[in-house]
Each structure stands twice: as structure tokens, then as C-alpha cells.
Design a protein around this nucleic acid. Structure first.
Lengths: 110, 110
DNA sequence: TTATTATATCGTAATATTGCAATATAATAA
DNA sequence: TTATTATATTGCAATATTACGATATAATAA
């Protein structure tokens, strides 16, 4: 007990869950917002922007990277992180489909 | 340490994080998919559909409800759960904006 | 070479999540 | 009233997440 029963769910369900989970922390939402706002995206800037210690930010960046939400490029000593458009498009579509689906149904209950 | 430093982030960042987090488990993605698929949405059906025990499903439903993703209506002995269109629309827009934003920028790095 | 600077990893404490058996509650049925 | 049925809550063990100080790594600068 304690661990998620990943093997009982579909690949798609696990994929969406992993992506959503990686966005499920305000620091990681803040990182995404910051990457959208700025043109350059050096890791150090993100550390300065967030109210968390450098190792904590590094850990959050790692989680976003593992999930595929962001990509990292080495730029000399620094690392440039960027949003992975393809993956975010999948999430956009997941939520777009849900809203579309509900609106078509005009459901009676709730 | 250990607890999320919620107070250091904006209301919006916390809101999106809470919503995303609540979807960040395959069982909860499965619940959402199921509610979209069926016309009626009785809790017992969800319990039968998922590979988890009844108390565990009840807990997942509670989390989705707390986050605002679903709403519950009492129907005699049973409870009818439905997706909250308004909240899902917010998520649709969050991800829609991100993709739109990236496409406009045509960023150079990564 | 020895700094310096930027980022990652390690180790660990505090806290949260997951899952379920047992039990409680609340509504209808007999 | 006493079942029965449907859902929620409690309690707890297993596991995961969050946060950060200390330290490691890796690149450039002096």
C-alpha cells in the first residue's frame, strides 16, 4: 500500500496523470509562467524569481523535465530551460476535449 | 519543511496547482473519463469501474470534489457525481493560453 | 594551476498521499 | 422496528513529496 497502482490503468490515464501531477505545485506553475513571460530562460533567473532555495528549485525543474513539460539546453555554465510545446498541446487537447464533450451532452444531472 | 510553501505564491498559481494536482492520479483521470462517457453517473458505478476498493474510490472522489473538478448530487441512497464544466474550462484556458503564447513567440532556444 | 560561478545531487526531517479493512452513517425496503 | 444498500469516515501502514543544508560537479575566469 501507499504507492499508486499504475499498472491497473491505461497508458493514457497514466500519462495525463503524470503531466498533471508535475504541474500540481505552485512553484512549478510559477516556473511555467516565468518561462512564458521571458525571452531568455536561464536556470539562475528562475532561482532568483522563486521564493525557494536553489536545490529546491533544481528539484522542481527536474520534475518538470522528467514529466516532459520542459526541456533543458546547456549554455556554457548555465542551463536554458524551455517549455515543450508538444506536450503542452496534449494537455490543451485533453482539457479541450473534456469541455467540448460536456457542452455536447447538455447533461441533466448536477 | 515538507509542506508546500503555499503562502509564497499567487492565488492563481495555487489554484491551478490544486486543480492539476487533483487530476494527477490515474484513478482520478479514469473517473473523469468515465463521467464523460456515461450519461448517468452514480458513485457505485465508478466503484465497479475502477480497480480499487470502495473506500479508496470514495477518497479519490472526495479529492476531485474538494478541488472543484466534480460536483455531487444526492439521488436517494446513491450519489450522482458530475464534472464541473466551469472549472474544467479554466484549465482548458490555462493550457490554451500556454500553447498560444509559445506559438506567438517562436522562441530561439531549446 | 586555483578561484569562481552555475547547477545538480545527497542526505534527511517534516509532511502528504495512497490504499484498504473496519466501521459509521444515512436512506430506503421489508 | 430490523434489514439492506450505498457511500463516507476512521485508523494505520507503506510510500511519495517537499524543502533545504551540505556537498559534488562542471564550465569558465584569473
Amino acid at each position: 500500500m501507499g504507492a499508486t497502482k499504475t499498472e491497473h490503468f491505461t497508458d493514457y490515464q497514466n500519462k495525463i496523470a503524470t503531466l498533471a501531477k508535475s504541474i500540481g505545485h505552485p512553484a512549478r506553475v510559477a516556473i511555467i509562467e516565468y518561462l512564458l513571460k521571458v525571452d531568455t530562460c536561464i536556470c539562475g533567473d528562475i532561482v532568483n524569481e522563486l521564493p525557494l532555495a536553489q536545490p529546491t528549485v533544481s528539484q522542481h525543474l527536474k520534475e518538470l523535465k522528467n514529466a516532459g513539460i520542459i526541456k533543458g539546453n546547456i549554455e556554457g555554465t548555465a542551463i536554458c530551460y524551455c517549455i515543450n510545446e508538444e506536450v503542452l498541446n496534449e494537455l490543451k487537447q485533453f482539457f479541450g476535449n473534456i469541455v467540448h464533450n460536456i457542452q455536447e451532452k447538455k447533461r441533466s444531472c448536477c
